[in-house]
Amino acid sequence: MTQKEINLEEQFQARIDRDESIEAKDWMPEKYRKTHIRQISQHAHSEIVGMLPEGNWITRAPSLRRKVALLAKVQDEAGHGLYLYSAAETLGITRDELTEQLHSGKAKYSSIFNYPALTWADMGAIGWLVDGAAIMNQVMLTRTSYGPYARAMVRICKEESFHQRQGYEIMLTLCKGTALQKELAQDALNRFWWPSLMMFGPKDDESPNTEQSVKWKIKRKTNDELRQQFVDQTVPQAEFLGLTVPDPALKWNEERGHYDFGDIDWDEFWQVVKGHGPCNKERIDARVKAWEEGEWVRDAAVTHAEKKDSRTEQKVA
């Protein structure tokens, strides 16, 4: 590294330390740029793949009101994907390249979406737990150092917290309903509780990117801190629903002022991350299928636009 680069890096860090927002045209270390492309695109991909498990229930929603709300929610996720891809594009990569990375498996997305949505109650559990866990991360990201990402997150957070309330309301309706409905709710909580805790990523001492991310203010809290915050927030909500969190070790710790909770099955976590979860293959196959079947459509749009332009030029000439 030359002296000039060292100075630039120091100045850059000083800007971050002063909580200045970094903008697309500002100088930034290559690693900062790459880390952001990785993280923002991972987030965008999660939105897009996340449309699939919920999309699976749109045609079978139990009422017109629920159908419309679910459609609108999944549509919001497409919108989030769109602005996150745009935020990533400010760092010098195209949406097509990012899409290719998703399809080839080079880019990751949130592992939670590799779990299947099996019953209507899962629409409640996903909104309540999965969006709830996502918000913990996302609220923090509204103050992240990279301006375009932070601004995208402000808008996304507003919609996500609405989704979370909507999910909780589905759970509440089920829990106030018949015994069968309550059983559906409990079953959904049983299946989504642990994968939701896994959403915060590996334990801090096994999370290689955390230290640098905290220094760059990409992350302002560690994985374990956020996970604890989620458990502390969610357990009373489960109690209010009259549901049992599927963790025999779960206990309020007076001294710490937090809930203690049991060990996550990290073997399962890594297995899903590595592509061997219940639906990894199906999710990517669905994305690739939509992309490949849409190729002729995208080509047609481009060709039509070019023809139109050349006709206009001919007229002008």
Binding site: I48, M51, L52, G55, I58, T59, K67, V68, L71, A72, V74, Q75, A78, G79, G81, L82, Y85, A286, K289, A290, W291, E293, G294, E295, V297, R298
Partner: peptide
Amino acid sequence: SELCGHGPNLETDIALTNHSL
């Protein structure tokens, strides 16, 4: 609504979902 999440690109996916809504 069957198409939601499976459109040829995000923009048309969003637009057709609007129609459905």
